[in-house]
Amino acid sequence: MGAVAVLAGIAAFGGTFAVLVGAYGLRQARRVSEMGVRVQALVKRHPGEVREESAPLRPLLQFVTEDDRVMEVVCPVPTTRRQPFNDGDNVLVSYDPADPRNVVVHGRERLGPERVFIAGGALVVLLSVTLLVVAIAGR
């Protein structure tokens, strides 16, 4: 019983941590998208990208902040066949004025990984509680 309880506790802690990480990611993306500064960003090919056989590197996004700083950040979402980021394109982004490296590309928010963290973490917590209840009932 003791080993099962320890295992269930560790799993519940890990699941709770995953839920919190996913929720934080969703909150940050929503906050930057809604309250961040919206600007047009220029899509630039990543320097040194010459590889054709492997997956392309994420492009760079270049934009000017409200205080006239030129920022160049790695795009937070990868290019896809359906929605490629072509060199020289302009995309609408929102950035966090407190940390302009934190950007959200409008229309291409990838919230799937955060949702997977939340769902997976909740599942692990549920399984660990179930395991604990079964272990206590079988006593």
Results as ranks from 00 to 15, higher is better:
107 G>D: 10
132 L>A: 12
2 G>K: 13
60 L>T: 01
126 L>V: 10
136 I>T: 09
100 P>M: 04
77 V>R: 05
87 D>N: 15
66 E>Q: 12
107 G>S: 10
83 Q>Y: 08
79 T>W: 04
107 G>R: 09
103 V>Q: 02
102 N>C: 08
59 P>Y: 06
114 E>R: 02
80 T>N: 06
71 M>Q: 09
100 P>N: 06
68 D>M: 07
55 A>R: 14
83 Q>F: 08
81 R>E: 13
43 V>T: 10
48 G>A: 12
43 V>R: 09
65 T>M: 07
4 V>Y: 00
93 V>N: 01
8 A>F: 03
78 P>R: 13
72 E>N: 05
48 G>N: 11
114 E>G: 01
116 V>C: 07
95 Y>M: 08
45 R>W: 01
39 V>T: 15
124 V>Y: 07
100 P>Q: 04
135 A>F: 00
133 V>C: 11
60 L>S: 03
38 R>S: 13
135 A>G: 13
76 P>T: 05
44 K>Y: 08
34 E>C: 02
7 L>P: 00
72 E>W: 00
96 D>N: 11
107 G>V: 06
13 F>W: 09
38 R>M: 14
136 I>D: 03
57 L>R: 13
137 A>N: 04
74 V>Q: 13
32 V>S: 03
93 V>H: 02
136 I>S: 09
139 R>S: 11
42 L>A: 11
133 V>K: 03
27 R>H: 15
131 L>S: 11
57 L>T: 06
119 A>Q: 06
137 A>G: 02
3 A>G: 00
113 P>K: 05
77 V>E: 09
118 I>V: 15
50 V>K: 11
103 V>E: 02
68 D>S: 09
41 A>L: 10
84 P>G: 07
88 G>Y: 01
12 A>W: 01
76 P>F: 00
9 G>D: 08
30 R>K: 15
54 S>E: 15
137 A>D: 07
61 L>Q: 06
28 Q>D: 13
52 E>Y: 13
63 F>L: 11
65 T>F: 00
16 T>R: 03
52 E>F: 14
40 Q>P: 00
63 F>R: 06
62 Q>W: 00
91 V>S: 05
10 I>H: 02
110 R>T: 04
71 M>N: 04
129 V>C: 12
47 P>H: 00
30 R>N: 13
108 R>M: 10
89 D>T: 03
32 V>Y: 04
60 L>Q: 11
31 R>G: 02
29 A>T: 14
69 R>M: 06
18 A>F: 13
108 R>A: 09
101 R>P: 01
115 R>F: 03
23 A>R: 10
47 P>K: 00
105 V>N: 01
12 A>D: 06
89 D>S: 05
51 R>P: 00
96 D>V: 02
103 V>Y: 01
71 M>P: 00
54 S>D: 14
81 R>D: 11
